[in-house]
Design a protein around this nucleic acid. Structure first.
Length: 582
RNA sequence: GCCCUCGUAGCUCAGCGGAUAGAGCACCGGCCUCCGGAGCCGGUGGCGCAGGUUCGAGUCCUGCCGAGGGCGCCA
């Protein structure tokens, strides 16, 4: 709707058809935003490839296209440049009309996806009775941004928090809980000090053979459904999830208890999944274990590498759980698309899993699974992020430090009461961490540096929030002067800074859709940073309240308001709040 | 040994097969009786190496070098 490409594309197709015959009208004119402003606003690069196909010179082809191109009301007469580029400069009147239209649209020009899909997003995945650390940060933040973008595009999103709530570890954890007594264990865990509880259990397990033996038999009791053991296990889960909820709330993440579908959830399905794979002729017994061998994977010894459906001792491991989860998401949840936000180290595991899913007929055609892999969070030394003592860094500790520092920055401004100030500090501090994470290509590692994250200059969360604050500030100032900030006022584009700003505003739709396709939130952050930059230039060079005419003032107020709403929407899609003042 | 990811400016990072590879920080030089200077304008500086595909390669393919990760019953 907002995208100028919608107006340009059909006109190019028509021109190409007229110039070279209708069979070529389907050729992609390769329309893009211009690399440089001096080349115009948009460029068509398709003439080069078409020239190759027709065995004619690209410039000749470009000239022929231009000869049939009707851009009346949209752009100035197009120009052929270089080897065969077609440069397009949009008309100010066209840009103004598009911006005006945009301002009247709640979705700011972003249409829903053509087909709404059911999308399962598996993210966060903390472990019961273990502290959340920076590793969970990425999954939680990236997953939450993906959820918000997909929901905005009209997809039916099912969040799945694949809680680590099962496994042999629980023998020692439950045994430790029993030793402490329920009340004391509950008291300790409810303090949110999960790490200490886990470490104590681990220390006893390693040091005390008798305890280790009790822990092992406790695993058997758990698997056997012993009521007291199950009750203690459930207590660990309840206390942990209560704690995770507080972290999610602090983070401003959408996850709730309703989204939890932990490993244990799939236990009742495991035997049936194994039977299913045997029936399909995919699973075979190897070295005593029931395995699926997807082609193309080899282990250290060069032999085929398995997905282990059932261990040689008859038990089930994570391979089985993940297979069951995959089948459940397809058959019971009706997923068209399944997204796993899990760190990059598990990419081989997911490649195996998805291949097996295809072999079993669970995936394929339009139904697909994707591993949204991400890199590690590094400390200042470029090594995986650890405390001085070498321990893992608690996620909440980082959040609190960021909020604390943000508070100091916000306090500089004064003019906010204390309650507002601490709320804004939370929005800024948490937003800074989220933005820093999301603005990097998720495939790469990044260095956790609070100083840089909280900087007010550069490509940071606070800078974008600040740009938004300025748009709000201007609106308040206008209101004080009795100027109604009419969002519906016609936008008139005259200055270069206005043109650049409008072009950026019109590009939101393309960016949001490409973010949803590639599942790369940093595309959106890059866009928003460019938008904020375009706005500050506009703000610097185009007087708003002191504009030459009432019409121009209304136009610029409308542009400011539209920019503010776009920043707020974009940040919102990333899970970052946009305060009114800071 | 095999497989995966990454290598772009002094630093942190964008870059969708298209023109002279862009930002931010830092550094240097300008601007400002200005609606939030947390600013604006300009400058210095770069694709790990070698081949290949292509009209066109930072982008795709192959090899090498370097960093990180993974490779059977832990998730």
């Amino acid at each position: 709707m907002s995208d100028p490409l919608d107006d340009l594309l059909p006109r190019f197709s028509r021109a190409i058809g007229m110039a070279f015959g209708t069979e070529h009208a389907v050729v992609d004119p390769v329309l893009r935003r211009s690399a440089q402003a001096t080349f115009g606003d948009y460029q068509a690069n398709g003439a080069m490839a078409l020239g190759k196909a027709l065995d004619r010179s690209p410039r000749e082809v470009a000239t022929a296209i231009v000869g049939h191109l009707d851009l009346d009301g949209v752009a100035e007469p197009p120009e052929v440049a270089g080897p065969g580029f077609i440069n397009i400069r949009l008309l100010p009147a066209y840009l103004g009309a598009k911006a005006t239209e945009l301002a009247g649209d709640d979705r700011l020009g972003v249409r829903p996806a053509a087909t709404a899909e059911t999308v399962v997003v598996d993210y966060s995945q903390p472990n019961v009775a273990k502290e959340m650390h920076v590793g969970h940060l990425r999954s939680t933040i990236i997953g939450d941004a993906i959820v918000r973008v997909l929901e905005f595009l009209g997809h039916r999103v099912i969040r799945q928090n694949h809680l680590g709530d099962w496994g042999t570890n629980f023998g020692m954890l439950i045994e430790h809980l029993g030793d402490l007594g329920e009340d004391e264990a509950a008291a300790e865990l409810s303090l949110g000090d999960l790490e200490a509880f886990y470490q104590q259990a681990k220390a006893k397990f390693d040091a005390d053979p008798a305890f280790a033996e009790r822990a092992r038999s406790r695993v058997v009791a758990l698997q056997g459904g012993d009521p007291t053991t199950l009750a203690h296990w459930q207590l660990l889960i309840d206390l942990s999830t209560r704690y995770f909820s507080t972290v999610y709330e602090l983070l401003g993440v959408r996850l709730t208890d309703d989204d939890i579908a932990g490993e244990s959830f799939y236990n009742p399905m495991l035997a049936d999944v194994a039977d299913d794979l045997v029936d399909k002729g995919l699973a075979v017994v190897d070295e005593g274990a029931l395995c699926v061998f997807p082609p193309g994977f080899a282990g250290r010894d060069g032999k085929p590498f398995p997905l282990m459906v059932r261990k040689s001792d008859g038990g089930f491991g994570y391979d089985a759980t993940d297979l069951a989860a995959l089948r459940y998401r397809v058959s019971a949840l009706g997923a068209d698309r399944i997204i796993y936000v899990v760190d990059a180290r598990q990419s081989q595991h997911f490649a195996l899993l998805f291949k097996a899913g295809e072999m079993a007929g669970w995936l394929g055609d339009a139904r697909r699974a994707e591993h949204v892999a991400f890199g590690a969070v590094l400390g200042p030394d470029g090594r995986p992020f650890k405390t001085r003592a070498g321990g893992t860094v608690k996620l909440v500790a980082l959040l609190r430090e960021a909020i604390e520092r943000a508070e100091a920055v916000v306090a500089d401004r004064g003019e906010l009461d204390e309650a507002t100030r601490s709320e804004v500090a939370r929005q800024v501090g948490v937003g800074a961490i989220k933005y820093a994470d999301l603005s990097n290509d998720r495939a790469k590692d990044y260095v956790f540096d609070l100083d840089r994250m909280l900087a007010m200059d550069g490509n940071t969360g606070p800078y974008l929030q600040y740009a938004h604050v300025r748009t709000r500030s201007l609106a308040r100032r206008a209101a004080e002067q009795g100027v109604t900030p009419a969002t519906s006022a016609p936008v008139v584009v005259t200055e270069p800074a206005e043109r650049a700003l409008v072009l950026q505003l019109l590009a939101l739709e393309v960016v949001v859709h490409s973010t949803a396709e590639t599942l790369q939130p940093h595309r959106l952050t890059t866009y928003l940073f460019e938008l904020a930059s375009a706005f500050t230039t506009f703000f610097d060079q185009c007087p708003v309240l002191r504009a030459d005419t009432p019409e121009q003032r209304a136009s610029r107020l409308a542009l400011t308001d539209l920019t503010g709403r776009t920043l707020r929407l974009g940040l919102g899609l990333l899970g970052i709040e946009a305060p009114e003042r800071m």
